[in-house]
C-alpha cells in the first residue's frame, strides 16, 4: 500500500507541476488542484498508513490512528478549496479584461477577440 500511495502522490505532483508550467490559466488552475490533492494525500499519510483504526476515542479499542494529520488535512482542504475558487474567478476576470487566457495577457489575442466580437455583432 505504501508504494501505491507514494506513486499516487508522485503522479499527482508531477502532473500538477506540469500543468502549472502551461501558459494558459485553465491548465494552471487544474495544476493547482492536482498539486493540492497531492499535498493533502501526503499530509494524510504522514500519520502513517493504517487500516481499521478509528481516530476518535471509543470503548474497547486500544489501537488508534493519529487524528492530527486528519485535522490538518481538513484545514488544508478547506483552504485549498477557497483558494482554487478564487483563482478560477480571477482567471475568468483576466479572460474578460485581457481578452485572452494567457497568463501573461498577450496583446495580439485581444485584437483577435475584438474582431471576433464584432463579427458576432454583425451576424446578429
Amino acid at each position: 500500500m505504501e508504494i501505491l500511495v507514494a506513486l499516487i502522490i508522485a503522479s499527482f505532483t508531477s502532473g500538477g507541476v506540469y500543468l502549472i508550467l502551461k501558459a494558459r490559466t485553465f491548465p494552471v488552475a487544474l495544476g493547482m488542484m492536482l498539486l493540492s490533492y497531492a499535498v493533502n494525500l501526503f499530509l494524510f499519510s504522514m500519520g502513517r498508513l493504517q487500516i481499521n483504526r478509528p481516530a476518535i476515542l471509543k470503548e474497547g479499542i486500544t489501537d488508534y490512528s493519529d487524528p492530527l494529520p486528519q485535522a490538518l488535512v481538513l484545514t488544508a482542504i478547506v483552504i485549498s478549496f477557497g483558494m482554487t475558487a478564487f483563482l478560477i474567478v480571477l482567471s475568468l476576470r483576466a479572460r474578460y479584461e485581457l481578452g485572452n487566457d494567457h497568463v501573461e495577457g498577450l496583446e495580439e489575442d485581444s485584437q483577435n477577440k475584438e474582431s471576433a466580437i464584432e463579427e458576432k455583432k454583425n451576424e446578429s
Binding site: 498539486l35 499530509l43 504522514m46 492530527l68 490538518l72 488544508a76 480571477l90 495577457g105
Partner: peptide, 27 residues
C-alpha cells in the same frame, strides 16, 4: 489583473510547498 494572477499562482505553489514541509516535519 495580470500581475494579480502571477502573484496568486506563485503564492499558491508556495503554500503547497509549505504543506509538504509541514507534513515531512510532522511525519
Amino acid at each position: 489583473t495580470k500581475f494579480g494572477i502571477h502573484y496568486m499562482v506563485i503564492n499558491l505553489v508556495g503554500s503547497s510547498i509549505f504543506l509538504f514541509a509541514v507534513g515531512a516535519l510532522y511525519g
